[in-house]
């Protein structure tokens, strides 16, 4: 049993739920792993605090996730809003090698104390998406690329298939560029971690 607990937190409309669906699609449909996803629903999914959780099991024999809820401490936490950042403690992330990563958006969160004490990658996602690709919706794909590289749960092919499934044809090229960009960010981050060790 090699469970990965992933939690994404942000506010409604940022693409929290879409990102979680992309992760589970890549992991389960294209990589063939057992996975479950749950999300905030009804009123909670709009405005305010919005969250989504994904559990992936890397064990190929596992037919289903036995406990489908993501549990703290998480393996991967993606934080996109100030509120999510203030809620987060150091203990919420696993303190192990190769796991316990934090991905956060430096353009929407001003102060994130916990980020200094964990393996954290901060990217000004919203800002970069707007500057480089012309629309903040591409922020999701940047995140997806970075997540793919850092987590190493699913392959790049699976990720690209997922993007093809999720985005409209007209923006596919831009999305793939955004994905590539995110991937490079992730790679760089991993390198700096290795060097630090």
């Amino acid at each position: 049993m090699a469970r990965y607990e992933i939690r994404i937190i942000g506010f409604g409309g940022q693409g929290v739920i879409t990102l979680s669906k992309m992760i589970i699609t890549a992991a389960s449909l294209y990589e063939g792993l057992a996975a479950t996803q749950t999300e905030a629903y009804s009123a909670a999914a709009r405005g305010g605090k919005c969250w989504a959780e994904v559990v992936v099991d890397l064990d190929q024999d596992q037919s289903q996730i036995d406990y489908p809820k993501a549990l703290a401490p998480y393996d991967f936490s993606i934080v996109l809003s100030e509120e999510g950042a203030s809620e987060m403690k150091k203990g919420d992330l696993k303190d192990e090698k190769n796991t316990g990563f934090l991905l956060w958006d430096t353009s929407t969160i001003k102060k994130f104390r916990t980020a200094k004490r964990v393996k954290a990658l901060g990217i000004p996602i919203q800002k970069l998406a707007l500057e480089k690709f012309g629309n903040s919706v591409f922020g999701n794909t940047i995140l997806f690329g970075a997540f793919m590289k850092i987590s190493n749960i699913f392959s790049e092919e699976a990720a690209i298939e997922t993007i093809k499934k999720f985005v409209p044809e007209s923006t596919l090229d831009t999305n793939l560029k955004a994905f590539e960009f995110g991937k490079q960010k992730g790679e760089k981050f991993l390198q700096t971690l290795m060097e630090a060790n």
Binding site: K21, I24, S28, L29, A35, T36, Q37, T38, E39, Y41, Q64, P68, K69
Partner: peptide, 9 residues
Amino acid sequence: AYLGHLHEV
């Protein structure tokens, strides 16, 4: 409520 909102393959 949990099963109803659970995404699975």
